[in-house]
Amino acid sequence: MSRPVEAWVPIDDRGLAYGDGLFETVLVRDGTPLLWSRHKARMSRGAEILGLPVPSDAELDRLPGMAGAGLKVLKLILTRGSGGPGYAAPYPAKPRLLWQLSHFAPQPVRWERGIKVRLCRLRLGIQPALAGLKHLNRLENVLARSEWNDPDVAEGLLCDSQGDLVEATSMNLFWWRQERWETPRLDRCGVAGTLRDALMERLRIEEVSMGTEVLAEAECVWLGNSVQGLWPVVRLDDAEGNLQYRWQLKREHRALQDIAHELLGYPVVPKS
């Protein structure tokens, strides 16, 4: 059953109690959801792994059309629904689909001038069964994001417990090195973003398992997701705020951003 997110959610909802569910955040432009088929496919994959019934296309497809004109973000939350005490899942599950539409304004200055990021102390736990899913268990991201309050730091980079780069707290990571695009492999943890998926279909992007030292060899570094688009990284600090690396923005390195913004309907950043 679908309802707005403002609706009352019972205390026995398993998404609230255990993080037993999935979510999606979808950019909606004038009532049209961007990368919509990929968002639905990721939710479907996650639902299959968690053993949840999948909302019908009819139930999902009506929601973006309620956005009206302008740029909005549609947030979908699918939980297993209500259940009794303990971790044992109710059978059959009666899932609860919550949704919210909110106004959104992107940050063009970050597209153009780039951002400063930092390394996070927190390490992501390795759990291949949940790798790639956008599940509701996001305490690692919450703790990582709480490591800094500096408004000049736009994001934090996360490694897994073995020291390999995975992602940022809410974005995927890309870099250009040795004449090719690379992105962290996400077979042990992390969220496989829909924009990342679309870019990997359009360009040859190699998945690699490497630590932060690889960034010393990168000519450019980017962070991106399906709502914000792609931000170039111009500076990386360590967890104490000490400079690690700098990158100079060059127009020839914006090919990835150009494609990402075409997919999301954002403007191409002009030559500097």
Results as ranks from 00 to 15, higher is better:
P267V: 06
D61Y: 09
L203F: 15
D152H: 14
L165V: 08
C120Q: 12
C159E: 07
R123V: 04
V28Q: 09
L35G: 11
I259Q: 09
R246M: 15
K75C: 00
V26W: 01
P108Y: 06
A67C: 05
W8I: 04
E201A: 08
L71I: 04
R145H: 10
Q107L: 10
M171L: 09
K72L: 05
Q107A: 11
W176T: 04
A47V: 06
R38V: 11
R145D: 09
R180Y: 13
A131Q: 01
A129R: 13
L122D: 09
A216G: 13
G132R: 03
Y87I: 08
E6R: 07
A218R: 09
C159A: 09
V214G: 12
P95E: 02
L236P: 13
I259F: 05
R235L: 10
L199I: 10
G125I: 00
P10R: 00
A47R: 03
W222R: 02
I49E: 08
L165T: 07
M171Q: 06
L52N: 02
A255R: 13
M43V: 11
R246A: 14
V221T: 09
A154P: 11
V142T: 01
W247H: 09
A192H: 12
Q127E: 10
W231L: 00
D12S: 05
S102V: 06
N172T: 02
V28T: 09
A7I: 00
I77L: 04
W99F: 03
E59A: 02
R202M: 08
Y91D: 15
